[in-house]
């Protein structure tokens, strides 16, 4: 569990705070999406939640972040990097090895996992992500989606309770992006891993996450279940965030009084809504 209490952070060389007075808590087993315009502080928030800010990035940090009760300012990164893992935005630069197997071994070796267990974890994590066949492959020969899975596997092998991902689908096409989100959902549901994902692709967020946090100029604009907060369509648009077209459609139909259900987030939900409105047999 992560609790952020009135967090404000300003990078050393910047003239404005990147995060302004943010208070939130992320419960175990949650699947949280963080979105906002470019420069809204998404990445900074993610890094504040796992202690990279203020340890690796210098600046003025106010308030507190506690990971399972441990204050990130008082503890060193090594104390909580076993609990929380982050997959970074730049897929290529975070890799440390040239072969998939070595990439996953890196963290396991560093944390001093007993050698008997390393083998088991290595094979299990490859199995969990459905990539046992990539084990001996050169990372440079993999596709974007495959690389992303390897990056996730390398973190998951360390068995963190919380996984933070910074725009993991930035360079992937829609189909591979959905595949990654599907994988994260599976990890969340089957293994109970808490997922915090930064993402601009609002359609994907709406379809997959349980909770959506929207940032605006470093401050918390919305925090709630996607179906509920997306209904503030006008505000979303002024913040510079588009909502899924089907959500806007359900909003319009609700406005005109022909529909009184919730905001629809996917095409399937919208189809159900339209049939309901038109009294079609389902």
């Amino acid at each position: 569990m992560i609790v952020a209490d009135h967090v404000t952070f300003q990078y050393a060389e910047s003239s404005e705070p990147a995060l302004r007075d943010i208070s939130l808590s992320i419960d175990d087993g949650d699947f949280v999406g963080i979105t906002g315009t470019s420069g809204a502080g998404k990445s900074t928030l993610a890094m504040a939640l796992n202690g990279i800010v203020p340890h690796e990035w210098k600046g003025d940090f106010y308030g507190s972040v506690k990971i399972d009760g441990m204050d990130t300012v008082e503890h060193q990164t090594e104390d909580f990097c076993r609990k929380i893992g982050e997959v970074f935005q730049d897929i290529d630069s975070q890799m440390v090895a040239s072969v998939v197997e070595d990439e996953i071994l890196f963290g396991l070796e560093n944390f001093g996992v007993p050698h008997g267990e390393i083998k088991i974890r290595l094979e299990k994590v490859l199995e969990d992500l459905g990539i046992p066949d990539l084990r001996k492959r050169e990372i440079s020969s993999l596709s974007g989606g495959q690389k992303q899975k390897v990056a996730i596997a390398a973190i998951l092998a360390l068995e963190p309770r919380i996984l933070v991902l910074d725009e993991p689908t930035g360079e992937l096409d829609p189909e591979s992006s959905r595949e990654i989100f599907g994988l994260l959902r599976k990890l969340n549901e089957e293994k109970g891993i808490t997922i915090v994902i930064i993402e601009q692709k609002i359609k994907l967020l709406c379809e997959y996450v349980k909770r959506l946090i929207v940032l605006d100029k470093g401050a918390l604009a919305f925090d709630g279940v996607p179906g509920e907060i997306i209904s503030h369509i006008e505000t979303f648009k002024t913040l510079g965030i588009n909502v899924p077209p089907v959500a806007e459609l359900s909003y319009l139909l609700r406005q005109s009084g022909v529909y009184d259900g919730g905001i629809t987030l996917t095409v399937q939900e919208a189809e159900k809504m339209v049939r309901e409105v038109l009294h079609d047999p389902v």
Binding site: P174, E175, R178, K203, P244, P245, V246, E248, L249, L252, V267, A270, E271, V274
Partner: peptide, 23 residues
């Protein structure tokens, strides 16, 4: 390729919304 939402929704109703593309 993942189709756009509204045309895809319209398609689910056969020819009924044949000329529908936008919200």
């Amino acid at each position: 390729v993942l189709p756009a939402q509204i045309p895809s929704l319209a398609l689910a109703f056969g020819d009924r919304f044949a000329d529908v593309f936008t919200i």
